[in-house]
Design a protein around this nucleic acid. Structure first.
Length: 470
DNA sequence: TGAAATGTTGGGGCG
DNA sequence: ACGCCCCAACATTTC
């Protein structure tokens, strides 16, 4: 009997899992292990809701494993200590794990590899960092050429997904600990954790001629429609194989019924490429977690009270507030909303993008350092291939464009529920009579805008003019 | 994966 | 009929 450890990190799935597959080939017995790393659990960037999503995902994985004659072993502590103890107590020959390209994970894995037989197989990205480089071997810092080459590399390497194993032999009586329970903070779970649910959503999004992926190009920016895949939390924890999602998107492009549908599938695949782009950026430029990628010396105002207003959804701009309430209410925010609130924080309020980045990490189920950092630096105009400094969203126009009837605003802002279409995006213009009729008195039921956008825009342009290209 | 400011054009009102 | 003005509507430039 030989034993291999399948060390699960952010690949909570049995299907299309190269690390699990390698472990099964290497040994007669496989020990599925998840380590609750003290260092990660103590991080101020780990929100309770994401932790709970992870723990419940582990419970789901354990259920799936038990149906295959196995079970999940959970241990807390320092990964190196846990692994070396298990290697000797179980006489395990090797450890197999999916590669995690984030700086913290690379450091941890390098330390472990130095003394333990750690084998990395598969990647949290679709194409691993290093697979998409410029001719001179340098990493891309502009998205469009990156995506062109990415598509070429991806198309060349086809292949079918690895089926989930029928059975895992797992050694008996390995001491583990029960998966911790956390009370649910939110009443509704928009995102039931687990691979089964993830596959169900993927199937619904990509199969059939009426699939959402074919409407993605036209609907994805609409806050008031379900135009996105809502797969991000599952991709974040590898409850879905990102490679498998990309394969299905690719297939949808090939079999699209018309050019409009093809455009939808292409746009969706493009978003997956953005995900890879930012994973690669973080791999090649880990300092972006602390520093601006390209601008230096923006004179941030960093008003804590304004920040509190933004966090709570009390800015007085309905679309901004509705998006923040959506984040607080379901630990997820529409991508269009993320851009709107990020632009408002960095450009209107002139608050350092790091404040918003951290807040997002604390609240998003899909919070991932690479994509989150990339998105924030993009909006702040400090990142790779970033929005230019002068691109400043007007929260009123964004609301009118992407929530035309205000349905999204009314869903998240009960105090605005009876405000008419004419004023739903700028309630401060409401005459007193209508305020009373709508039960929404400015300054009482809903705040006046905490800042005047036209003025704030001017201020932002002046502030960014002081920044230096670095 | 913006928005505002500025420029241009052309129809209609009017003396 | 003609010129002038006003101002949408659209295009271009600028931030």
């Amino acid at each position: 009997m030989t034993t291999a450890i399948w060390w699960i990190r952010r690949d909570l799935r049995l299907g299309d899992n190269p690390a699990l597959s390698a472990a099964l080939q290497a040994a007669s017995h496989v020990l599925p292990l998840f380590i609750l790393d003290d260092a990660l659990l103590r991080s101020s960037r780990l929100g309770e809701n994401r932790l709970r999503f992870l723990l419940e995902g582990l419970r789901q994985l354990d259920t799936d494993l038990r149906q295959r004659g196995s079970r999940l072993v959970v241990r807390s502590g320092d990964p190196h200590a846990v692994l070396s103890e298990l290697i000797s107590s179980e006489a395990a020959g090797a450890i197999y794990a999916e590669e995690d390209h984030s700086p913290h994970a690379r450091q941890r894995d390098a330390r472990i590899s130095a003394s333990l037989p750690l084998n990395l197989a598969g990647s949290a990205a679709i194409l691993p960092p290093g697979a998409v480089l410029k001719n001179d071997g340098a990493p891309y810092t502009v998205f469009t050429p990156f995506s062109r080459l990415w598509l070429g590399v991806f198309a060349a390497g086809g292949g079918a997904p690895i089926p989930p194993p029928d059975r895992l032999n797992t050694p008996e009586s390995i001491p583990g600990q029960p998966i911790p329970s956390m009370p649910a903070i939110l009443q509704s779970t928009l995102f039931p954790p687990g691979e089964r649910e993830a596959l169900r959503r993927l199937e619904a999004f990509t199969s059939g001629e009426a699939a959402g992926i074919y409407r993605y190009a036209q609907d994805r920016n609409r806050l008031d429609l379900d135009g996105t895949s809502m797969l991000s939390p599952y991709l974040r924890f590898g409850m879905l194989s990102p490679l498998q999602v990309a394969r299905l998107a690719w297939r949808a492009i090939q079999s699209a019924p018309d050019s409009h549908a093809r455009k939808g599938a292409e746009t969706f695949l493009n978003e997956l490429i953005w995900r890879d782009f930012y994973l690669h950026i973080l791999y090649h430029f880990p300092h972006v977690l602390r520093d601006n990628f390209r601008l230096e010396g923006i004179p941030w105002v960093n008003d804590p009270q304004a920040f509190q207003g933004w966090c709570a959804g009390h800015t007085g701009y309905p679309v901004v507030d509705a998006c923040m309430r959506q984040l607080l209410g379901c630990s997820w925010m529409h991508n269009r909303g993320r851009m709107i609130v990020a632009s408002f924080l960095t450009k209107d309020l002139l608050i350092d993008w790091r404040w918003g980045e951290k807040f997002f990490m604390q609240h998003l189920l899909d919070g991932d350092p690479a994509s989150n950092n990339g998105g924030w630096q993009w909006t702040a105009g400090t990142g790779t291939d970033a929005a230019p400094y002068f691109r400043i969203f007007n929260p009123v126009l964004q609301g009118m464009k992407f929530d035309p009837q205000g349905a999204f605003i009314r869903r998240w802002m009960p105090e605005l529920a009876n405000v008419s279409d004419a004023y739903i995006h700028e309630p401060w213009k409401m005459p007193l009579a209508e305020q009373q009729e709508a039960g929404c008195r400015l300054g009482i039921n809903y705040p006046h805008p905490i800042i005047d956008h036209a003025w704030a825009r001017q201020r932002a342009l002046e502030a960014y003019a002081q920044a230096k290209t670095s």
